[in-house]
């Protein structure tokens, strides 16, 4: 499978990372060499293999329904790039 420039741009859109044409071309080259190498996996027949989703061979621990995190608004907003004491602020969204 080769990855064309259009695909590279589509992935960049999905990743929300803008790239210019020059970068896109470089990525096209890099991704193709990486995926050519990755595709050696196709030599393996895995039809009867169960996928491994979690390496920790236990099940999910359940926590009690208790409120432990109190109001930490100041901490939450402290690092935000646009100052506002109540909210996170982003460019206007039109739905």
């Amino acid at each position: 499978m080769t990855i064309d420039l259009k695909t590279v741009k589509h992935i960049s859109k999905l990743s929300r990372i803008s790239i210019d044409d020059q970068k896109a071309k470089k990525l096209e080259k890099d991704l193709n060499s990486i995926f050519k190498w990755i595709e050696q996996l196709n030599q393996l027949n895995t039809d009867k293999v169960e996928p491994l989703t979690s390496i920790a061979e236990t099940t999910l621990r359940l926590r009690k329904d208790q409120i432990e995190s109190k109001n930490i608004r100041e901490d939450i907003l402290k690092n935000s790039p646009k100052d506002n004491k109540d909210y996170f602020v982003v460019p206007k969204v039109v739905e």
Partner: peptide, 24 residues
């Protein structure tokens, strides 16, 4: 429920903005 699905902050309706937000 009292607290959120994956975090321990409260779920009370109509609270002041961003007062029921944990680091998670």
């Amino acid at each position: 429920s009292e607290s959120k699905l994956f975090s321990t902050s409260a779920t009370i309706f109509g609270s002041e903005p961003n007062t029921q937000v944990s680091l998670v």
